[in-house]
């Protein structure tokens, strides 16, 4: 296959970027998209040109490190991660445009690499159940209906890649945040901190500069793990319920 690539090149976060065109004329349809870039990079290096920086690690669709905005879609035309996309999904002679995730909260680090640390900061603000190691009850002491456990699991499969943000015209992170909020809101272990969690995570999301949700559903359509926007609805309910009912417990009343 012969493929023409228009790739975003940007030296660092302070520089201005631009598209650069490359032609690859020995692409195999069995190559993964990232392997096609590997081959291009090796060719560039042998020609004395600097390789194109892109994030990737596990290459089996689970670590969430790979990104790339391909022909106007995060992770390309299929609902999968870029590392699981193969060149047989493209036509011989096709021109493919590759950009980094575009979002204010995800600044470009270099070429196609962006900084997604905003996601980590949101998780730190409340995406956990406060238990220390040891001293926990036996695992079977808390029965959880299978349906609830499965629903929580579906939400928990988010890989934190950021495709939802990249797909959204508002660069909203609602799908990402709601997946974690849902997982813990559904499970009995998450109940004690339920209200505080959603309040904190939403506040952090806003502080990071992600946009608002206008229910276009683009995030769900592009999510490589098929996370449902039902989670966003659930987070909205959790949030409003927390805002209207949570209160500071007065202390010292017994003295």
């Amino acid at each position: 296959m012969k493929i023409t690539l228009k790739i975003w090149r940007q030296k660092d976060s302070n520089s201005k970027g631009a598209f650069k065109t490359y032609v690859c004329d020995h692409v195999s349809p069995d190559m993964s998209f990232l392997e096609m870039l590997d081959v291009l990079n090796n060719d560039l290096i042998r020609k004395g040109e600097e390789s194109i920086a892109f994030d990737h690690d596990c290459r089996e669709g689970i670590c969430g490190m790979c990104s790339l905005y391909i022909n106007g879609h995060p992770h390309g035309p299929l609902q999968t991660t870029t590392c699981q996309l193969h060149m047989r999904s493209f036509k011989d002679g096709e021109t493919i445009t590759i950009e980094p995730w575009r979002a204010k909260a995800f600044p470009v680090v270099k070429d196609l690499v962006v900084d997604r640390s905003a996601f980590d900061r949101i998780q730190r603000s409340g995406g956990f159940i406060s238990v220390n190691t040891g001293g926990v009850p036996d695992a079977n002491e808390i029965p959880i209906p299978k349906k609830i456990a499965d629903e929580a699991f579906d939400a928990a499969t988010c890989i934190g890649c950021g495709a939802c943000v990249a797909a959204c015209k508002n660069a909203s992170a609602m799908l990402f945040v709601s997946a974690k909020v849902s997982q813990f809101a559904l499970l009995p272990q998450g109940k004690p901190e339920r209200k505080e969690r959603v309040e904190k995570m939403v506040a952090q999301m806003d502080e990071e500069g992600f946009g608002a949700c206008t229910n276009t559903g683009a995030c769900e359509a592009e999510c490589p793990k098929g996370i449902s926007i039902t989670n966003i609805a659930r987070m909205n309910r959790e949030y409003f319920s927390a805002m209207t009912t949570s209160y500071e417990v007065a202390v010292g009343g017994g003295e």
Binding site: F128, I129, V131, T133, G134, V136, P137, D138, A139, I142, A149, D150, A152, F153, A156, Q183, F184, L187, Q189, G190
Partner: peptide, 11 residues
């Protein structure tokens, strides 16, 4: 297993 369940791991 006890620890992971307490953390909310959906086994």
């Amino acid at each position: 297993i006890d620890q992971c369940v307490a953390q909310g791991v959906p086994f």
